[in-house]
Amino acid sequence: MDILAQLAVMGLAAFLGFELISRVPNLLHTPLMSATNAIHGIILVGGMITVAQDGPLWVKAVGFLAVFFGALNVVGGFWVTNRMLAMFRPPVKRVKRRV
């Protein structure tokens, strides 16, 4: 039954993902891509769980690399998105005031 619950959650999450992205201004396409890129850095959770298990050295090394990659994805992803949004925020405001 566990798998059915998981599939149901996945179905709802997929629906939510489709619904969330609609009529987004072109300006925000790249930051949205970058932010969702950071969110799939959640894979770091999986890396932490897998590296915490016992295993031979090579499996530990694989897990270590996964955690390293995941952390790179999370920190780099959110950081770079923040820089992007910091850059184009003022011009957007000016355009709005003019209108």
């Binding site: 997929a14 939510l16 993902g17 489709f18 992205i21 969702t36 799939h40 894979i43």
Partner: peptide, 21 residues
């Protein structure tokens, strides 16, 4: 694989929204 809900939820949201995007 890991039986972990946050990975399923966040991963699927990114997968779906990424496709639309």
């Amino acid at each position: 694989v890991l039986d972990n809900y946050i990975l399923i939820i966040a991963g699927t949201i990114v997968g779906a929204s990424g496709t639309i995007l």
